[in-house]
Amino acid sequence: MTVSPDTQRARAWTWAITAAGLVVWAALPWFLSRGTIDILVFAGLYTIAGLGVSFLLGQCGIVSLAQSGFYGIGAYAAAYGTTALGLPIPVGIIAGMVVSGAIAAAVGIPVLRLSGHFLALATLALAIIAHVLFLELEWLTGGTLGIGGIPRIALFGFTFSTPFRFYYLVWPCAFALILFYTLLLNSRTGIALRAMRDAPAAAAVAGIPITSLKVRIFVLSAAVGSLAGSLFAHYVSFISVDSFAIDRAISFLLIAVLGGVRSIPGTIAGALFVTAAPNYLSRLGDIHPILFAVALIVAVIFLPGGFGGFVSSTWRRLTAGPRPSATGGP
């Protein structure tokens, strides 16, 4: 197969920009305050959780507000596993992902047959159920008192104890997941997902098992959300039910929408906005939650492709040469 010079040029540019971005990323913490690095760490955590929501919405058309629940399960699995059961850290993290995935499968099989707003409200209901359970199951979660003393992650004797150090743990995870999701998008499965989004009837005729694929992606998204929650627990070392309320589900959705649901790397932009904006807006006083809500409205109305969609359409305009006409004959 031949690659057109345009495509080649676009690829070269993509690589160059990615490489430059990585250099900036690696150098950044050396020049920033602890507080700013802390924000960037949260942006990394939220990128991970937001990726799951974004992919679900953009590729499967599923609005998921349940991610805060899975984020919570991941956090409590890490906390309870290490503090109460004395399990090694990776076991807690994996247990959280397995439990989240299992719950997502059990709930997803019936719920994902719903469509549109039904589905969105069903996932919101799930988030509420999860939040109440986090509050009520005190033996497991510590209720409002929470769980403290969660150990830091250590690799080869190096402890990720400070924001500076954790930055170099969370972002590689986020980058890896961006890579994985991109691979998934361009695979046969990804094509099938986009196909069923475009024309569900024809996708069914092509033998694409629509519900089962949606359930699988939902399970994947839950596991990824759980991973983010576990990392969060090991980073802050104290968690309480307040971190897993509905507003967290909403910030994850906001990340996806702002970042652009069709753009996987766009999630980073969404997460940076959601974590950094309140910090700067808080100078204006408590008005920032209002501005946040307005941002969601404005983004949905005026920027349906999000930051990512905006960048990629501009990018395509800049790099692509003239296309062969769609109507002309051979």
Binding site: L184, S187, R188, A195, A203, G207, L220
Partner: peptide
């Protein structure tokens, strides 16, 4: 047709059922 997919991707989607690999492998 799958409007956002290229013509070739449309055809690839058409034989989805012949594939064996799953979501995790693709991930």
């Amino acid at each position: 047709v799958f409007r956002d997919l290229t013509v070739r991707e449309n055809l690839v989607a058409g034989c989805h059922m012949r594939g064996r690999t799953g979501v995790l492998e693709a991930f």
